[in-house]
Amino acid sequence: MSTMAAKMIEMPPNVAAQNRARREWTAMLGMIFLLAAWAMMFAALFFSYAIVRVRSNVWPPVNAPEFSIMLPAINSFVIALSSLVLHRGVSHLRKEKLAAFRNAFMLGSVFAALFLGLQWHFWSALMASGLTPDSGSYGSIIFGLTWVHAAHVLIGFFALIVLSIQAWRQVYRLENSITVRLWTMYWHFVGIVWLLMFVTIFIM
């Protein structure tokens, strides 16, 4: 086991627990490669945005309707908060505080739903103000990139619902916590991508 793995997973003394730690590291490695693949997909989207943007004279375009970035800003808080909550939840699970773990994941699911709801509201508001997916590359970037991101949030949202139900039934303990930890990793990843989108698309 590499030193990096040893740092991420404390090596317990007995063989069964060591084997569990090895299996967990294998699973985590798989997740890391999966996220690497997904990072490349989003990198390609950001690359597209960069090309479109550097090739246009003015950005945003002169005739583009003004809109408030309030909703995306709130959503950044929501998703950051949800990541924090899930992180706390995982540390509760590590200490086998099952009730606190369950509550954290239920709260996390609520935040995920809130994020999706606010996104929906944001898209509707944009369309009402006259900015649609087919109004030039500006609309394409804003809608296309946030759509793809929201699709990933949706996957994470369903996972959180399932995890919360399982947490309610007390399925998870420290031994099988890897599933929870991997989905939390996924959720952090989706959150980081959102923050990058918020900064590059809505602030810059």
């Binding site: 090309i51 479109v52 246009s56 003015v58 945003p60 002169v62 030039g136 590359s137 500006y138 394409s140």
Partner: peptide, 8 residues
């Protein structure tokens, strides 16, 4: 592109 914000 003609309208100022082109796809490519």
């Amino acid at each position: 592109n003609a309208t100022g914000t082109g796809g490519d």
